[in-house]
Each structure stands twice: as structure tokens, then as C-alpha cells.
Simulated assay, not measured.
Amino acid sequence: MSPLATPDIEEVTNLAAAPLEPWEVVVWNDPVNLMSYVVRVFRTYFGYSLERATQLMRAVHHEGQAIVATGPRETMEVHAQAMHDYGLWATVRKAAR
């Protein structure tokens, strides 16, 4: 075989992409931020209606946490960082199935 010739190689490749796993941004209750401020952050950043933002804020306040967004991991990490920038406590976790 000449140095430039390539051997016949039979490759089996699976090009199917793995399904995107959903992730969640969880905002946690804290002793620092006012409820009105949390509502304003949810409305300003996520564009939620007053009613939805208030519902999420109440979940944070009464249950200690609320899932405020669901989607691809990278996007959820951006959202969690934005919540940190607003002074809220937030984490990213894999969504329960």
C-alpha cells in the first residue's frame, strides 16, 4: 500500500442526538428581599404578568422555593446568574421526570 493510500475502514456511527434534558431554575426564600422586589424582578426579567409573578413570589415566601423557569441547562444557568445579579438566591437543577 502506498503511503498516501488509506485503508478501507468501515465505520458505524450513530448520529442521533441525545434528547435535551429539561433543567429548572429554583429561586429560594431569603430574609433580605422584599416580596414586592421579588415580584418586580420576575416581571422585569422573565416578563411574567403581575398575577404570575405574585404567584411565584408567594410560593417562594410560603414554600421556601419556586421553579421560575424550565429549559436547556445553559439557558437556565444564565437565568440563575441573572437572579444572583438581582440579589436573589437561585440554583439550577435537573427537572424531575
Rank of each mutant, 00 (worst) to 15 (best):
residue 41 V to K: 00
residue 13 T to C: 06
residue 94 K to V: 14
residue 90 A to R: 05
residue 39 V to Q: 01
residue 14 N to Q: 09
residue 17 A to L: 14
residue 65 Q to D: 02
residue 39 V to P: 00
residue 11 E to I: 15
residue 51 E to A: 12
residue 54 T to A: 09
residue 82 A to W: 01
residue 4 L to V: 13
residue 20 L to N: 08
residue 85 D to V: 02
residue 58 R to W: 10
residue 86 Y to I: 00
residue 35 M to E: 05
residue 15 L to Q: 10
residue 36 S to Q: 11
residue 9 I to L: 14
residue 23 W to C: 03
residue 17 A to I: 10
residue 45 Y to W: 00
residue 64 G to N: 04
residue 6 T to S: 11
residue 92 V to E: 03
residue 28 W to C: 01
residue 57 M to W: 05
residue 36 S to M: 08
residue 48 Y to V: 05
residue 57 M to V: 09
residue 59 A to D: 15
residue 83 M to C: 09
residue 78 V to E: 07
residue 26 V to L: 13
residue 31 P to Y: 06
residue 87 G to K: 03
residue 21 E to F: 07
residue 88 L to S: 05
residue 87 G to F: 02
residue 4 L to P: 06
residue 57 M to T: 10
residue 64 G to I: 05
residue 11 E to T: 13
residue 66 A to E: 03
residue 73 R to K: 15
residue 54 T to H: 11
residue 37 Y to I: 03
residue 44 T to F: 00
residue 76 M to D: 05
residue 11 E to A: 12
residue 38 V to Q: 07
residue 9 I to V: 15
residue 3 P to T: 12
residue 23 W to G: 03
residue 44 T to P: 00
residue 91 T to Y: 05
residue 91 T to D: 11
residue 97 R to M: 02
residue 74 E to A: 14
residue 86 Y to A: 06
residue 52 R to V: 09
residue 53 A to Y: 00
residue 94 K to D: 02
residue 15 L to E: 13
residue 8 D to S: 15
residue 70 T to A: 13
residue 26 V to G: 07
residue 21 E to H: 04
residue 51 E to G: 04
residue 50 L to D: 13
residue 74 E to M: 08
residue 67 I to H: 08
residue 30 D to E: 08
residue 62 H to T: 12
residue 9 I to R: 14
residue 79 H to L: 00
residue 48 Y to P: 05
residue 24 E to Y: 01
residue 61 H to D: 11
residue 90 A to G: 10
residue 67 I to Y: 07
residue 68 V to K: 03
residue 62 H to R: 14
residue 45 Y to H: 07
residue 73 R to A: 09
residue 92 V to N: 03
residue 63 E to M: 12
residue 81 Q to G: 13
residue 82 A to L: 02
residue 68 V to Y: 01
residue 93 R to S: 11
